[in-house]
Design a protein around this nucleic acid. Structure first.
Lengths: 400, 400
DNA sequence: CGATAAAGTTAAGGACCCTTACCAAGGTCG
DNA sequence: CGACCTTGGTAAGGGTCCTTAACTTTATCG
């Protein structure tokens, strides 16, 4: 997961061969309590003692220490059936904030959320930048504005995750394969972004983040292995196994645009056969004309325009092939369809399932995206929260 | 990884929400020392103190405790450049043994190895069993014989891993999709095996274990993401990412036999197009006759028999397609070719690489299997060792 | 108003680890 | 040959953390 990340922000990851001296024991227990408290939402000290197996005095002192660091606070009282009223504690969502960024070809989305995942501020602006410098500037400006809108001290934003097409190469410090964003592959851009914003940044592939977004907040909750198919301007896939992103050896896992597609007379790339562009091309081939978009074709198909219907039918066939390939290799229990073609999911879902029946005995559940256009942004936020929760906790111990 | 396993043998897996009381602290440090000692092979207490960051007294007492439990022992002394001679310690490989079993259609292989992975005894017998009962009996008999050959108390064998075609379904306690082993899918067979042998057994898919074998002992050392293509009677793939097996949501990951293969007039399964049977069928179609095996076809191709050459060429094309599909979805840095077709790897490797160039821009390293027929057995052993090392350690603390 | 029950606190005790200091053993150098 | 250095290993003391076992506090119920 961190292979794609820039500036991994210190040793957040527990070094397994560090000795377990007393300090770590204390820290680990405090962390255990904090995590449990997050899971419960709110709890009394006695309840936490029962849940974690720690003794009541230990819970009391540890929670006091967490409260002193600003990570938890009292939120009220609860009087049980009988017995003394309990003081309830909850994690303080304002202990840290994270930035999520979705850099798309047409839209730039930025959100700041607190540790609970509640959105403090958000902005969606059109991406009209024609150069990488302009784009970087737009990202920085928008991010600063969003942070200001949330009335936050910029230092309170402890981590940021950026979703973009392509793959971040941490060794060369640059984005690769981002064909649709001119100049975006220049080295050092991400570093500069992080510097100007004054926070550690990670960069991840947009399909990967969308998968994580759907897993965390959307259609994929509880899935053991989820594949998110992003069918838009391009074609991508993100894979989440047991809650963790599978990025492959070079971060290229899920680049199923590179799947060989034997449909045509000569081998072509699947991306050219499945993406939104292909839908338009097919519709044109079947007789539609004018300024077409994928959305327009789907709308026409809904109205029964024959050429559009045939184009959608063809698209379904190809999506089914894609799904079948992913299913055979990965054995997901859920495949989420998203991206620009998400607008046509209602039309595609049935035919895709139909074709799939002929293609393979494996039949994973297929569901439409539930987050829609927000999948990448929410995935970025979820990823950032994961590391930010570690970060805030570690910082605390350093500060105390 | 443990999703496929039967009888997970107690709570080997650390429960993350168990409180970190002092006992666990001690255990964790002892475990840290043991692991470090395994990595170093042999070391003095002072050296271990430097390496782990623990203090010398702590290392001394912990090591004494490990020695009392029989997990480590003194192995000699070392006089450094200057200074007092050090007492060297090493993990005791005889602290436990594991059983590895490879149930193939034609061969049954069984090995007993110590914790260092050194083979104590091994047997390879022909699998002539026609019923599941006979096969189970053969496995038990052979395993008992191997344990006896190694002059071991059966109780010293703490864990076993069985590799078999198909997928173990832990919920229904049976093997599924084991088409080539009649009756092997009956429920309870694995349970009975474990009972009769008196040890906890895990069952894994053979391709998965072979992948793990090549990763641990063979061509895949250090690979970040390895895919092992098992081309034999059937077609299978095992995936090892970051040293861990990827089994998918239902243990069916890598069942690329189910990939749609659009080559023929009607869609057929890739397994039918790529496996050893397909090589023979192709050779026959191109004019060869007589009692053919895949090996015979490859031998003939080496001698230049045209029909055989064409069959191999076709096979290469299809293997290339398989590799391309796996590469696009998973982004491995290494693909190992093994199985019965392994005998023809010398002929296939070049053409496969050639075809791949036309199919996809992704070009993972492709290597022949280095373990050959032993891949599954060694993978079983490696898997068993992983859990056995935990098991032996946990047992110790229980016993003391 | 006392019995009961649950939340939380206080005090004593134990387990573990670390630091400091010390001893032991082998070599080098005067 | 003995002082010194360097390294391995042990002993004693101190500190931190957790737990157990009481105790206090505060609510409900009869």
């Amino acid at each position: 997961m961190d292979e794609n990340g820039a500036m991994p922000a210190g040793d957040v990851i527990e070094q397994p061969d560090r000795p377990w001296n007393r300090g770590l024991l204390r820290r680990t227990n405090e962390r255990l309590l904090l995590d449990r408290l997050r899971a419960l939402g709110t709890a009394s000290r006695a309840q936490l003692a029962r849940e974690t197996g720690l003794s009541k005095p230990t819970v009391s002192t540890a929670l006091a220490s967490l409260a002193a660091a600003g990570l938890v606070h009292e939120v009220g009282t609860l009087t049980p059936e009988r017995g003394r009223t309990a003081v309830l504690y909850a994690p303080d969502p304002a202990a840290g904030y994270v930035l999520g960024v979705d850099i798309g070809r047409t839209w730039l989305r930025v959100a700041v959320v607190d540790l609970d995942g509640a959105v403090a501020a958000r902005a969606d602006v059109r991406n009209r930048a024609r150069t990488s410098t302009a784009l970087a500037g737009l990202v920085v400006d928008t991010a600063r504005r969003v942070i200001a809108d949330a009335a936050l001290d910029p230092a309170a934003v402890v981590h940021g995750v950026v979703g973009t097409p392509g793959v971040y190469d941490p060794a060369r410090r640059r984005v690769r394969y981002a064909a649709h964003l001119p100049g975006w592959g220049r080295a050092g851009i991400v570093d500069r972004l992080g510097e100007e914003l004054g926070m550690p940044l990670e960069v991840h592939n947009d399909a990967n983040l969308a998968a994580l977004g759907e897993y965390t907040y959307g259609a994929g909750a509880g899935s053991r292995l989820l594949a998110y198919l992003l069918i838009g301007t391009g074609l991508g896939m993100g894979v989440v196994a047991e809650g963790r992103l599978c990025t492959g050896a070079h971060g290229l896992a899920g680049e199923i645009g590179f799947l060989p597609w034997p449909g045509g007379p000569k081998p072509e790339r699947l991306e050219d056969a499945v993406s939104g562009v292909a839908v338009v091309a097919a519709a044109r081939r079947f007789g539609m004309s004018g300024r077409l978009t994928a959305k327009a074709v789907f709308d026409a198909a809904r109205l029964g325009v024959p050429a559009a219907v045939r184009a959608v039918e063809l698209e379904a066939e190809r999506v089914a092939y894609t799904v079948a390939a992913a299913a055979a290799v990965l054995d997901p229990d859920l495949i989420v369809l998203g991206g620009g073609v998400g607008q046509g999911v209602d039309l595609l879902l049935g035919p895709v399932r139909e074709h799939l029946r002929a293609l393979t005995p494996l039949r994973p559940r297929i569901a439409p995206s539930r987050l829609g256009e927000d999948a990448v942004l929410l995935g970025a936020v979820a990823t950032a929260l994961d590391t930010a929760r570690d970060l805030v906790f570690e910082h605390r111990t350093a500060g105390t």
